[in-house]
Design a protein around this nucleic acid. Sequence first.
DNA 1: GATGAATGAGACTTCATTCAT
DNA 2: AATGAATGAAGTCTCATTCAT
Lengths: 204, 204, 204, 204
Amino acid sequence: MSQKLTIKSTISRKEKEKLKRRKTILKSALYLFSKKGFFKTKMEEIAKKASLSKGLLYFYFTSKEEILEEIVKEIYRGFMERIEKIKAKSISPAQKLEEFIKFEWNFYKRNKKFANLIFELYQEEGYFLKKGKVKTFREVHLREKEVLKNIIKEGIEKGIFKDYDPELASFIVSAIFHFVFMKSRGIKSHEEILELFLKGILKK
Amino acid sequence: MSQKLTIKSTISRKEKEKLKRRKTILKSALYLFSKKGFFKTKMEEIAKKASLSKGLLYFYFTSKEEILEEIVKEIYRGFMERIEKIKAKSISPAQKLEEFIKFEWNFYKRNKKFANLIFELYQEEGYFLKKGKVKTFREVHLREKEVLKNIIKEGIEKGIFKDYDPELASFIVSAIFHFVFMKSRGIKSHEEILELFLKGILKK
Amino acid sequence: MSQKLTIKSTISRKEKEKLKRRKTILKSALYLFSKKGFFKTKMEEIAKKASLSKGLLYFYFTSKEEILEEIVKEIYRGFMERIEKIKAKSISPAQKLEEFIKFEWNFYKRNKKFANLIFELYQEEGYFLKKGKVKTFREVHLREKEVLKNIIKEGIEKGIFKDYDPELASFIVSAIFHFVFMKSRGIKSHEEILELFLKGILKK
Amino acid sequence: MSQKLTIKSTISRKEKEKLKRRKTILKSALYLFSKKGFFKTKMEEIAKKASLSKGLLYFYFTSKEEILEEIVKEIYRGFMERIEKIKAKSISPAQKLEEFIKFEWNFYKRNKKFANLIFELYQEEGYFLKKGKVKTFREVHLREKEVLKNIIKEGIEKGIFKDYDPELASFIVSAIFHFVFMKSRGIKSHEEILELFLKGILKK
DNA sequence: GATGAATGAGACTTCATTCAT
DNA sequence: AATGAATGAAGTCTCATTCAT
């Protein structure tokens, strides 16, 4: 029995090692994808950055594209739940919007490298090698926009927000986040963004 | 003399043909770049779409990358002058902003395919094959943001706009345009965007 | 009849023009072949240097390779006769050798560009595009060596030259000429070469 | 410890395999370059001759041109040292000349295929694709001629050789070697060449 | 005759993926 | 598990040659 445990813990350590390796690969790939783009990044480079051999990448992932997909999955882990939780809260739409924006702000701040990649992910189906891949992003992004749209819709219905097209409004929030994170370096907090979106730039 | 004219017009026709071909190539390339991305588009495909041989592409352009650069140049022809003209007008900053947004709206509406490409163009130096290429986009985009920032700064100084960071504000306008054009299909006019930006979404 | 003559002279002038063109092409090609080598020289470049269109080259010659062959033919025109004449003279082998060397010296001096090309021409069958082409060079060169060998053989038989292998001796003379002309710039006359070959470098 | 050694020897075997492959490639390339010339030889052919895939060539070398350069380097390995050693010996210039000629004779005899290539290597800068490449040949050849010139100069100064231009005399020796090796098949030894060069062909 | 636009075969090279060790 | 040598499909680009005008 003691042996069993030993074996078990050995396996467990092995498993841990494996998971750690996996993470190292994803991290290295993310770094390179965000810096040079998906197509310009070579498997060789990912391997080198992760300090392992090219061949081993194929033990952990079936293809370059799968690495990308797994990056997206990993990053979005828990993302949806958080979003849904905000949606479900019994607070005013304005407060929901604030929480939403705050959450996204922090999320993209934590995942700045990933934000760089997003532009490539936005490409149409067929942009990446095999169809149907990199679908997580599409799914998450769709749901993200959906929730945002609902918040705005709710605000309009409750007479808090003006009667803008929710599609447009949610689009604009999306746009701001992705764009700001990809390119801006100087913006320190999300509050100005929220304020601008809420009250506009015009004085009085 | 009449013969002279005939000759002249013959030459002219040939030149016209050539220019037309050139345009066909650029159009085909733009279509494919915007649909599949720059890297996934093959020279073979561009040739096929333009109904000519692969080799001929290299008669008109020196490389795939040059095709991209020429697309950008072609599209931005006259763009800067229009932007500068708006900047120079003696109207209020709010009106300038309106004209600016209106112009960009129409521009990107006219060049929807190009708007799709923009995400790739935003990539860092070194993303494309040879350094220093595809610089037109970078230049134009920089100036575009500069002008916008100036308009907003002017508005703030004249007490018309609130004291937001002009960098942030101009960034947001940029973001909205590029994003909206790339992905949105339903938005019919720019007026709502302008209004939202000016007055915010909050009622009262 | 006067008309006939006029026509004749018109044709004749045309013919002359054509021949002149032909020569211009060959000259341009020789210049480029000798400078950059046969393979690195493009038809486009030959056309440009000869101030005519690429297409027209194919009116005068059937292929790039034929241009090379014609260059060789043109240059070697009369060469064989001169060589044979020297061989047939009733003078001593030493004098023949002198005349031979003098002739070759002047020949390669006059055709320095061609001398540069010779290295490529020495390549085996199959080096150039279609087999059996550029044969003139091979033929002339073979005969040239043959004659030289005979002169030396004659000298040996008459007890004037030492009993060296005529093959070797003739080879050395060939070598010297082609090599000296290709690379040396400073040698002013052939007399030293002849002297060296006749008496050797050793004093006494 | 014995295991360590085994591992070591395993690594060593792999390294050896790799070096062997490298040599096979160079050998195949040399064979083809010397037979058909550099430009007419295709990477495909080199791969086929070496019984491996085209792609693998680029694992061992960065380009076709590098293969050529490496061939030259490989062949000239140790060549300079030998030449310098001859130069430094305290023997008479005539003896030095003899040793020099003997050495070169044996060298080019051992590397007959390479001797064929030399004619292409003699081409001007810019003949090969990228400038600055295939420089080893140029360097070695320059030094080779320099040493030979010095030997002859020394001979003249010591009153052993006649007062010929050392430039010319060294040129002739070079010429003979490269030429003789490239084309002659029948010459059995270098002694006749040396003798001819020393004493000339003229009897008495 | 003359032009130069057009073709297309084929070259070099890259790189994701596989596989023997 | 791990390596990195090996593969081969596919991409960009070149250029001799052809051909419509």
